[in-house]
């Protein structure tokens, strides 16, 4: 069964090691089990609860339109604030009331997170980078120390090492202790290695820069 392979591959295992006994998990080795696995319940909009013909609105998933202003961006006196708040409470109540189907109960293969739409929960998705707060903890003496180290031995005390030592960002080190000679040397070194590039690498880099500009332009 070649069709089994991709599904088996996307089955995500628990990343965190746990000391609980592993539950027995069966693989989808037969066509029948496979079909049952793929037999997901239809979208709620396709199964109307009334007999009268209703409008089926089931658009493909896409990024929200930028013309829909988020609740936080609305001014204080905008009428949409109450509408959004009312919708939010109603949607949460409905989501919590809807029971999960038996086939997706915990312990079955369908309970794996890749098969199910995300359940409504209070938890937010994980951050892309670890959030940090600015500490503003360096004193004038620290800054003088940073400048002295950077001036005396720029090869040893790079921006990265200074940032690690003093617990600040590299940007801040560059801000308070700029070393022009070192920057020029590094830049000329980079320029020399860039001069050795061939046509393909150079065009690939230029194209990457051009694509990077399109990120902020929605293209």
């Amino acid at each position: 069964m070649s069709t089994c392979k991709p599904l088996a591959r996307i089955c995500i295992r628990n990343r965190q090691p746990s000391f609980l006994p592993l539950p027995q998990r069966r693989h989808e080795s037969t066509t029948r089990r496979h079909k049952k696995l793929l037999n997901l319940p239809a979208a709620p909009s396709y199964t109307p609860d009334r007999s009268q013909p209703t409008l089926i609105f089931n658009p493909p998933s896409s990024a929200p339109s930028v013309y829909h202003t988020p609740l936080k961006f609305l001014p204080k006196d905008d009428r949409r604030r109450q509408l959004y708040a009312a919708f939010q409470t109603a949607a949460t109540q409905t989501a919590h009331r809807t029971a999960s189907p038996a086939v997706a109960a915990p312990g079955t293969p369908l309970s794996a997170p890749s098969f199910l739409p995300p359940r409504p929960s209070a938890g937010l998705p994980p951050p892309v980078r670890i959030p940090y707060d600015k500490k503003y903890h360096l004193t004038d003496a620290d800054i003088v120390e940073i400048q002295r180290l950077r001036r005396e031995d720029p090869e040893r005390w790079t921006r990265v090492r200074l940032a690690e030592k003093f617990g600040c960002s590299q940007f801040f080190v560059g801000l308070v202790a700029k070393n022009e000679g070192k920057a020029e040397r590094v830049e000329s070194e980079h320029e020399r290695s860039r001069a050795r590039w061939g046509v393909r690498r150079r065009t690939a880099r230029e194209d990457r820069g051009r694509r990077r500009e399109l990120w902020g332009r929605d293209a």
């Binding site: 930028v66 013309y67 829909h68 202003t69 905008d78 990120w215 902020g216 929605d218």
Partner: peptide, 23 residues
């Protein structure tokens, strides 16, 4: 890439701010 998605999301958020339309 994670960076691209992050930058695009920030651009979308800025657009959502700037394109506010009163009723």
């Amino acid at each position: 890439s994670l960076n691209e998605a992050r930058v695009r999301a920030a651009a979308a958020a800025l657009k959502a701010w700037y394109l506010y339309r009163p009723i």
